[in-house]
Amino acid sequence: MFVGCAGWSLGREHAPAFPGEGTHLQRHARQFNTAEINSSFYRPHRPQTYARWAESVPDDFRFSVKMPKLISHEQRLQGSAQALDEFLGQCGELGQRLGCLLLQLPPSLAFEADVAEVFFTQLRERFAGAVVIEPRHESWVQAEPMLAGHRIAQAAVDPSRLSNDRQPAGWEGLRYWRLHGAPRIYYSAYETEYLARLAAALQAQAQHGAPVWCIFDNTASGAATADALKLVKLLGQSR
């Protein structure tokens, strides 16, 4: 199981849980075994930057890397071969610490089978590793067979946007949760009771043998760090 946050910024209020010297990422990796790189959505990073991040964390640490909005929001999955090549050439410098790619789609992007098939084929021609998608248009519910065929997992999301995203869907070789905070998205912390139910759900999924990921994206007020620390404790996964 991989539990962490979107990014690795550490607020002062959490400093006692991350003692010692080092960058925020190095300190983050002493408590968590994953982080989601979201900045790659907004701008490209140099290959050397990814290589430096990989060198900053232990061997068992894994990154999830968000695919650029150029691909998902601007090109809308069409004509993306060059952008895929550039992105994969950059984040590939993570080496074995590249755990999976995250593709988050805009709410306005409906499922078009022909477009999706071409894109996923191009992606799979270039990348054999784990991929997870977070669609946000209800029509993507019908894409589950295609996702499974291309070995692409669909994230469980809170707050839910689709009729099938309260639990992981798509390819069963990866189970992935993205928790954005509720009721106030990106800000609200989760109650202990919710985290306890979540821990039980993660453990149940892990028994099937597939990697299980849980990323807290309620980072705007620092709640993600506290929630992730609580979940790690509930899972008995302290590093």
Rank of each mutant, 00 (worst) to 15 (best):
112 E>S: 07
104 Q>S: 01
113 A>K: 14
64 S>D: 11
103 L>E: 11
147 L>V: 01
142 Q>I: 06
129 G>R: 00
124 R>I: 06
125 E>S: 08
125 E>Q: 12
78 Q>K: 13
96 Q>E: 15
96 Q>A: 14
115 V>N: 13
88 L>G: 13
56 S>K: 03
105 L>D: 07
86 E>P: 00
97 R>K: 15
104 Q>D: 04
74 E>R: 14
97 R>M: 05
64 S>M: 06
110 A>K: 15
80 S>C: 12
66 K>N: 00
145 P>S: 11
86 E>R: 14
116 A>R: 01
147 L>H: 02
130 A>F: 03
96 Q>F: 00
84 L>F: 09
60 D>Q: 14
128 A>Q: 13
72 S>H: 00
91 C>S: 04
89 G>A: 03
100 C>F: 04
119 F>P: 01
91 C>P: 05
124 R>H: 08
120 F>E: 03
113 A>T: 05
106 P>N: 13
143 A>N: 04
91 C>R: 02
99 G>V: 08
111 F>I: 02
124 R>K: 02
94 L>D: 08
79 G>T: 09
117 E>C: 02
139 S>V: 10
59 D>I: 08
110 A>T: 14
135 P>A: 08
147 L>C: 10
120 F>M: 12
93 E>P: 00
90 Q>N: 09
70 L>Y: 05
139 S>R: 08
145 P>Q: 07
135 P>R: 09
122 Q>Y: 10
97 R>H: 11
62 R>K: 15
142 Q>V: 14
107 P>I: 12
125 E>L: 06
144 E>S: 12
61 F>S: 09
74 E>D: 10
136 R>A: 07
144 E>W: 01
86 E>Q: 11
126 R>Y: 07
142 Q>S: 15
111 F>S: 03
146 M>V: 14
87 F>N: 05
115 V>G: 09
77 L>Y: 02
56 S>W: 01
92 G>E: 10
100 C>A: 14
128 A>D: 12
130 A>Y: 01
131 V>T: 07
68 P>A: 07
112 E>I: 05
101 L>Q: 01
91 C>E: 12
108 S>M: 08
94 L>G: 04
83 A>S: 13
113 A>S: 13
98 L>I: 08
120 F>K: 06
95 G>D: 10
66 K>A: 02
101 L>R: 03
99 G>F: 02
60 D>K: 11
